[in-house]
Amino acid sequence: MREVFSLRNGHAGRSIFRICNVFFMFLLLVLMLVPLAKVISDSFDRSTIYGLNFWPKNPSIEAYKSIFTNPNLRQPLLVSIVTTVCGTALGLTMATLGAYVLRQKKLVGRGFFAKFIFVTMVFNGGLVPTFLVLKGLHMTNTLWAVLLPPSVNVFNMILMRSFFEQIPESLFESAEIDGATPPQVFWSIVLPLSTAALASIGLFFAVEYWNEFFRYVMYISKTDYYNFQIKLRDLILSEQNINDPAIIGFANMVKNAGVVVAMLPFFVIYPFAQRYFIAGVTMGSVKE
């Protein structure tokens, strides 16, 4: 095991390094936090022009109240949550299935499949053809248009595969000897050993679905199905929002609060996901 901080035993060099490291981390945190702190502080601040302060000058929680009580904003929040949860589940299913099959080195056609899927990362059909396909499937103006297409993500699938490749071959061999079918191996060996991978790639998917914006704009016209990001952009950029009571008089405050709300779910989810990262530390180093 690595030893803890100590000035004895000629560890001075290491100690200096650690102190520098802590200092560096501290600087990094300040750099990261200043803009965030400003947003959070301003989201509670009624003032119209903000200054150098990191504490609200005219404290008020009106902005949050209006976000959570206003159906204009509540409905999009709901859409965001639903699509993120379903999308992540769907995305993980696709990524794990794909990665599991692609990791079978002896499978006939594996190389072809890998290339077949990889091509889609660089080439895409563009807006109009994609729109026409979705329209043909009667998916425009439904949430399917934002849920299904991004669920196969080459990047995530390749990463997942590289995680799976770290699972020792012997485990598979012994399972095969026991007569387990591929789905059984997938379910009872691969998945349980991949919590860290599932957590990190699941988070990748969650972020993608949560921040999805372009697909809503292009494939959906019904404002009922718009998510929080669209509403947020509308809040920030819109030219015609004067009739929106959430805005008048304290526009900046609501914008800032919107930003905070948009990050909130990850404040909540992240500590859990992070637990899995740490729990999964052992994953990569399963001893053979």
């Binding site: 299935l97 099959v101 899927i117 994609t130 499937l137 299904l148 297409p149």
Partner: peptide
């Protein structure tokens, strides 16, 4: 996976 890729990526690629 294959079905999704074909429908959502390859068919539009004709475009």
């Amino acid at each position: 996976v294959l079905v999704f890729v074909i429908i959502f990526n390859y068919v539009p690629m004709v475009g």
